[in-house]
Structures are given as structure tokens and as C-alpha cells.
Simulated assay, not measured.
Amino acid sequence: MIVSIRRIAKVAMLTGALLTAGCSQTSGDASAKRTEFNIGWSIYAGWMPWPYAQQSGIVKKWADKYGIKINIVQVNDYVESVNQYTAGKLDGVTVANMDALTIPAAGGKDTSAIIVGDYSNGNDGILMKGAGDLKAIKGKQVNLVELSVSHYLLARGLSSVGLSMSDVKTMNTGDADIVGAFASPDVTAAVAWNPQLSTMKAQAGAKEVFSSADIPGEILDLLVVDTTTLKANPNLGKALAGIWYDTVALMKRQDAEGKAARAGMAKLAGATPEAFDSQLTTTYLYADPKAAVAATSAPALVTTMTRVRDFSFSKGLFKGAGSADAVGMSFPGGKTLGDAQHVTLRFDESYMKLAADGKL
């Protein structure tokens, strides 16, 4: 079973990252031209191409092309991987869009999202017992990992049926405990992500009433890199784009080589090939760089990140900020959100475009 932990579970971890980010960056080192880099990852279906690329030699192929060395480093805990990146111990990391905003960017670390790798297309869902209509959730307790993407999904789901967060009571429940909690007769509503979601859906009387497939493109999984490091070492971005698209093209193949690649990724994730393939059915991978460039350049991304930042601010995830505009974000075409003089999250499509144009 794949342990999907690309979510933030504890306020203390979030605020701790925000408070320490500004003083823990190694900006002097980041601005230097270098030949060796460390990219962190944690286990999630959409991120398994990275360790497989290292194992299979794809990382070395592209790193050698640009005369650099790239270490793909596993961090067992997702939160810790993002914190290590924020502290300057990693040059890049796999991260969800909401967490890229609320941890490194909100903490003042200038961060560039250079690979939009996938979006959750059903990996996250709202479940109820004894009701098949989300409107029936009004007045109920909802178990979930508070201040996570599950919390965001709940807010989006409620909004879709004319309800708000004040219409429900949330109960913070860790991802390790959510399956057991939902099995209790007292718990009638919950929000979860895979693989826990699949297990919970199989419980008697459980019905999925809303999922990330209802808000396609909003829960994004990214590869982000320190902006200063990237500016000093653009070949790092080129190599990472080459690695990603080479590997995803291989895993999407339906021949023996594609099957073997997916089986290899499943093993690295501690999953069976069947379980891994099941995870992929609810993960929309941007295998085509042209599609990734289009998604990153579309007005819909600005709309999504506006919703994400407004939700994050409303939950106190911009520590000490007076408004949601405190954190600046930039997008292709010169569009910005928030403080244009303090942009710390940049959606940079240039390396994906090089791949799309065959110029890597």
C-alpha cells in the first residue's frame, strides 16, 4: 500500500517553518555557480518517477549532458522534506501547491515551481455514511487532517452546494488514524486521500459525495527549486525537465518496458504493481510538456491560487500577515497576485517549454 503523505498535518510544523525560514536560508551558497545539487522527494504516486529515474540511469543521463550531478534524496516524512528545503538543506523538493505557498513562500524563501507534474483527479474525497448528497453534511462533524489539502477540499465542496465551513464542525484526525475513525459508528463524515480514501470507500454504507475530480487542476503536485540557485545554475532546470519528461513518457507506455517501469516505481513506493496502477488512475499526470505549459499559463491557475491563498490566509497559515496579499506570486505572462514587490512563489514554465519545443 502506498503511503501518501503529501499533506500538512500540524499547525506547529507550519508556523515553525514560517518563523524560521527567513533566517535559515543559505542565500550566499544559493547564488553561486555549482555542479552538484540535492532534490528531495517523499512517497506519492505522482512523485515516484523521480527515484525511479535515479535508479534507472535517467538522472545520470541528463545530469551528464549538462555537466552536473543531481542527487535525488528520499525524505521519509513529507513535512520534513518541505522543511528541509525551506531551511536550505535541499535545492528543490516535490510539494503540493498549497504547501509550497504556505511554507517556503510564506516564510520568505523565493521558490520557483518549474515542473507542474500532476493534479489529484480523485485521489482526495469527501465521504459520508447513509447519505449520497453533500448537502446532508450540514450540521455534522467531519473528521479530517485540519489545515491540509483535505480541509481545502472540504471548503470547496461546501461552497459547491451553497454551504460554508461554519455549517460543519471539523475534528482533526491524523492520516494514520482516519481509516479507524471512519469505521466508528459515531463518525459519519470524513475527508481523506489515497490510499486511505480507497479503504474507507470500501466500508459498508460509505459514499463519496465530492472529490478532487470535481475541481480538476486545483490540487497540484509540483517540483520546486530555490529561485536564486536556479538563476545561477539554469542547467539544473534543464536537466530536471529532461529527467521528468523522459521518465513519465516511459511509465505511460503500455508495452513491457512501460509495465516494468511502473512496477519499479511501485516497489520503490512499497506497493504492489496493481496498487500503484490504481493510484495512477486518480492522478492526472502531465506527461506532455505542451499540456503542462498550457496549464501553467492558463488563467485557471491564477484563479486556483487565489482560492488557495485566500483559504490559507483565513486559516492563519500566513503567520503575522495582515492580508492574503502579503505573499506575492507570479505567473507566466507577467501576471502577479499579492505583493508584486515581494514575490516568493513563481510559476516558471520556461523549462517545461524547452521540453515542449524539443530544445533541451
Rank of each mutant, 00 (worst) to 15 (best):
residue 238 K to I: 11
residue 238 K to Y: 12
residue 238 K to A: 08
residue 239 A to F: 03
residue 239 A to D: 06
residue 240 L to C: 05
residue 240 L to E: 04
residue 243 I to C: 07
residue 243 I to N: 02
residue 245 Y to G: 01
residue 245 Y to L: 06
residue 246 D to Y: 10
residue 247 T to Q: 12
residue 249 A to E: 08
residue 249 A to S: 15
residue 249 A to M: 06
residue 249 A to Q: 12
residue 251 M to T: 11
residue 251 M to D: 00
residue 251 M to C: 04
residue 252 K to G: 14
residue 252 K to L: 04
residue 253 R to E: 13
residue 254 Q to Y: 00
residue 254 Q to K: 15
residue 256 A to S: 13
residue 256 A to Y: 00
residue 257 E to I: 07
residue 258 G to E: 04
residue 258 G to N: 02
residue 259 K to I: 13
residue 260 A to H: 02
residue 263 A to V: 03
residue 263 A to C: 00
residue 263 A to K: 11
residue 264 G to D: 02
residue 265 M to S: 04
residue 265 M to E: 08
residue 265 M to T: 06
residue 265 M to R: 08
residue 266 A to Y: 00
residue 266 A to K: 00
residue 266 A to N: 03
residue 266 A to V: 06
residue 270 G to F: 02
residue 271 A to I: 02
residue 271 A to T: 03
residue 272 T to R: 01
residue 274 E to V: 08
residue 274 E to T: 10
residue 275 A to Q: 13
residue 276 F to N: 01
residue 278 S to E: 13
residue 279 Q to G: 11
residue 280 L to W: 00
residue 280 L to C: 01
residue 282 T to A: 08
residue 283 T to V: 00
residue 283 T to H: 00
residue 284 Y to T: 06
residue 285 L to I: 15
residue 287 A to G: 10
residue 289 P to E: 11
residue 290 K to G: 13
residue 290 K to E: 15
residue 290 K to I: 05
residue 290 K to V: 14
residue 291 A to H: 09
residue 292 A to Y: 09
residue 292 A to I: 04
residue 292 A to T: 07
residue 293 V to Y: 00
residue 295 A to N: 05
residue 297 S to A: 14
residue 297 S to R: 10
residue 300 A to K: 15
residue 301 L to M: 13
residue 301 L to T: 05
residue 301 L to A: 03
residue 301 L to V: 11
residue 302 V to K: 10
residue 303 T to C: 02
residue 304 T to E: 06
residue 304 T to I: 12
residue 304 T to M: 11
residue 307 R to V: 11
residue 309 R to K: 15
residue 310 D to Y: 12
residue 310 D to H: 10
residue 310 D to R: 12
residue 310 D to T: 06
residue 311 F to A: 09
residue 312 S to R: 08
residue 312 S to F: 08
residue 313 F to G: 06
residue 313 F to E: 05
residue 314 S to N: 13
residue 314 S to C: 09
residue 315 K to L: 12
residue 315 K to P: 02
residue 315 K to G: 13
residue 315 K to N: 15
residue 316 G to F: 08
residue 316 G to H: 10
residue 316 G to W: 09
residue 318 F to I: 10
residue 319 K to G: 03
residue 320 G to I: 11
residue 320 G to Y: 07
residue 320 G to N: 09
residue 321 A to C: 05
residue 321 A to F: 02
residue 322 G to R: 07
residue 323 S to Y: 03
residue 323 S to Q: 06
residue 324 A to T: 14
residue 324 A to V: 15
residue 325 D to Y: 00
residue 326 A to N: 07
residue 326 A to F: 06
residue 327 V to E: 07
residue 327 V to K: 03
